[in-house]
Simulated scan of single mutants.
Amino acid sequence: MSDLKKEAASLHTAATGLRGTGHHTTKPLQEFKAASHDLSALGALGSLLGAKGEIEKGMNTLAKLTQDLHEEWEAEAKFMGEVSDAFDLLDVLLAAAGESGKSGKKG
């Protein structure tokens, strides 16, 4: 297996893994977002300190950042897949060029 072929396979595997990360965090993120509106666990302490609004705002910010991270991971996975495809094509083209060079020398 050529180095390009190995790199392409490695990138393809990495891209596939990166695409799958969102599937593992979707449910926990939904639960986290829902919990940001129900901060009853803080009880009176949260109300007394006026912390509820700040905590809710912070949790919403974390949820938004996580969604942004998912989008970034998708973009990275797409790019890695494209590079993998380009390496595969380049490997085929180099092999074909090598074969045509050999047949040209025989004649």
Rank of each mutant, 00 (worst) to 15 (best):
S2I: 04
D3T: 12
L4S: 08
L4I: 02
K5A: 14
K5P: 01
K6H: 10
K6S: 14
K6L: 11
E7F: 06
A8F: 03
A9G: 04
L11H: 02
L11V: 02
H12A: 15
T13A: 15
T13L: 15
A14H: 05
A15L: 03
L18M: 12
L18G: 01
R19C: 03
G20L: 12
G20Y: 05
T21N: 10
G22P: 02
T25I: 15
T26D: 06
T26W: 00
K27V: 13
L29G: 01
L29Y: 02
Q30R: 13
Q30C: 02
F32Q: 05
K33A: 14
A34Q: 13
A35R: 10
A35E: 08
S36D: 06
H37T: 14
H37N: 14
D38T: 15
L39P: 07
S40M: 07
S40I: 03
S40T: 13
L42R: 10
G43N: 08
A44Y: 08
A44I: 10
A44Q: 12
L45R: 06
S47C: 00
L48V: 11
L48T: 12
L48D: 09
L49I: 04
L49E: 06
A51C: 04
A51P: 01
K52M: 06
G53L: 05
G53T: 08
G53A: 09
I55K: 03
I55N: 04
E56K: 15
K57P: 03
K57D: 10
G58L: 05
G58S: 10
M59V: 03
M59R: 05
N60V: 08
N60A: 13
T61P: 00
T61C: 00
K64R: 15
K64H: 15
L65P: 01
L65N: 15
T66G: 02
T66S: 14
Q67S: 13
D68K: 12
D68P: 02
L69A: 13
H70N: 11
E71M: 10
E72D: 06
E72F: 07
E72Q: 10
A75V: 04
E76Q: 13
E76C: 10
A77Y: 02
A77R: 03
A77T: 03
A77M: 04
K78E: 05
K78W: 00
K78M: 00
F79Q: 09
F79E: 07
F79I: 01
M80C: 03
M80E: 04
E82G: 11
E82T: 14
S84V: 05
A86H: 07
A86N: 07
A86Q: 08
F87E: 06
D88P: 00
L89H: 09
L89T: 10
L90A: 12
D91G: 08
D91F: 06
D91H: 14
V92Q: 15
V92G: 07
V92N: 13
V92Y: 11
L93E: 15
A95V: 14
A96C: 06
G98T: 03
G98I: 03
G98E: 07
E99W: 02
E99N: 05
S100M: 11
K102V: 10
K102E: 09
K102F: 04
S103C: 00
S103T: 08
G104F: 09
K105P: 00
K105W: 01
K105H: 02
K105I: 08
K106Y: 05
K106T: 11
G107Q: 07
G107K: 09
G107N: 06
